[in-house]
Amino acid sequence: MSLSELRFIALNRWLHQIFDSPVFPKLISGDASYRRYFRVQHENISFIVMDSPPELINVTPFINMANAYSEKGIKVPQVIEKNIEDGFLLLSDLGDVELLSVLNEDNVTAYYSQALSLLTKVSLVTQSGGERLPLYDDAFIQLELDIFSNWLIKHHLGIKLDEKTRNMLQIVFSCLIESANTQPKIGMHRDYHSRNLMLQNDELKVIDFQDAVLGPVTYDAVSLLRDCYIRWPDNIVDTLMKRHYEQLKYSALIEGNVTLSTYTRWFDLMGLQRHIKAAGIFARLKYRDNKPAYMADIPLTLEYIRDISARYPEFHSFNMWVSDCVIPAVEARS
């Protein structure tokens, strides 16, 4: 019997103890980690059950962040019952309408404006479980960027990096790290996009927040506006980006003397870092975690990397390498 089957039996046993009657969990999704989610019905009330193998992912950070977000008025799943030892949580059900599923060019500005407004509350969450959130520091960012080189470039594409290319990449990565360091640090969700925002009764609710950190002011905004799973016209993104800039100034999260030009560079370079990381993670999900579906999202992340890096002369060599080497290699493997 497989580990997942054994865990499902244990999960059913735990639920039976809670409800004092049999319930029938139905798998609704796994995510990009080792967690699985089920939906159960009891007396006409719907619940979500998280199955998180404790030796792989402890549920305590999720519980602590759910509490921290809720205290700031951010709508998140309520933790109703918990079994920390076995890695099971019973959660309130936020429905199954991801924001992504309803977005179009007519409503994206309105919905994303709501999502950007929520980021002011997110920024205030700087502690969890009585401890300061981890810092999204140089080592953290470098580790994420290396996922791109190791998993997409070397493992998936089989490209051996010569010394010139390695040096070029390190210069680019150092520039991205420096830009991130220049920005003020706030509470950061770290995966804030249209698949992690649920729409329930026309209200946005937030999921997948357990990896929150203290990080750059533009990270969550660029994660939302330059979504790895969908791309919007530049005029829409630019309008919303400027709205976030004004929001940061109004909330005193950036100094009044920070110009829109400075903010735009922060935003663009933060987006580059995130898309470089994401392209590597999508490849790692296939080869390490046996989740090949995310490979379909790599072309869009590379499009972003190509198009945004083209705006900055200092990334010319990187842009040419991505355009002439990486993208054709990915297309050839498709």
Rank of each mutant, 00 (worst) to 15 (best):
G30T: 15
W321A: 02
N257E: 14
L224N: 04
H275W: 09
C228T: 13
V237D: 04
P313N: 13
R306K: 15
L91M: 08
V213E: 03
F62M: 04
V222P: 02
F88N: 04
M188L: 14
G158F: 10
L91N: 05
G215W: 02
S149H: 10
V122E: 04
S70K: 14
I236M: 07
L214A: 01
G87A: 00
R231W: 03
F173V: 02
K75L: 14
S223T: 08
I171H: 13
D146G: 03
N319M: 00
Q114P: 00
I230C: 12
N167K: 14
K249C: 10
R13F: 12
N196I: 05
N83C: 11
L272K: 05
K164I: 13
E255Q: 14
L103T: 11
L11H: 11
E303G: 10
L56C: 00
M320S: 13
F267P: 07
E314I: 13
H189D: 09
T120I: 14
L285H: 12
A32Q: 03
V23F: 09
E43Y: 03
H156R: 14
T262C: 12
D31E: 08
V40D: 08
E71H: 09
I141K: 02
Q17K: 15
P54I: 02
I276P: 02
G30F: 07
F148K: 04
T262W: 00
F140A: 04
M168H: 05
N64G: 00
A329T: 12
N83D: 15
F140K: 10
L89Y: 05
I141L: 15
A296L: 12
I327A: 05
M241S: 15
L91Q: 06
G256I: 00
E98D: 01
I18C: 10
G215I: 03
T259V: 06
Y34M: 06
I45M: 13
C175G: 14
I230A: 14
W321E: 02
E246Q: 15
W14Y: 13
P61K: 01
I171C: 05
L100E: 13
D289A: 08
K205L: 09
Q247P: 00
P54Y: 03
V258A: 05
P25K: 09
I48Q: 01
L27V: 14
Y229T: 12
S128C: 06
I74L: 13
L285T: 12
N181H: 11
F267D: 07
Y69R: 01
E246W: 06
R306G: 00
A332H: 11
S334P: 00
G215F: 02
R132E: 15
G271A: 08
T60N: 10
I298S: 05
A32V: 06
K164G: 00
K164E: 15
D31W: 10
I159D: 03
F282V: 09
K160W: 00
D20G: 10
Y287E: 12
M295C: 11
A32C: 06
R284L: 07
D220A: 10
R166L: 15
I298D: 05
W266E: 07
I141T: 03
L119E: 01
N319E: 06
H275R: 07
P299N: 09
I308M: 03
I308H: 04
N12T: 15
G215L: 01
Q200F: 08
D191E: 06
M295Y: 12
M168K: 05
A180Q: 13
W151P: 03
A283W: 04
P77A: 04
V49N: 06
V122H: 01
T259K: 04
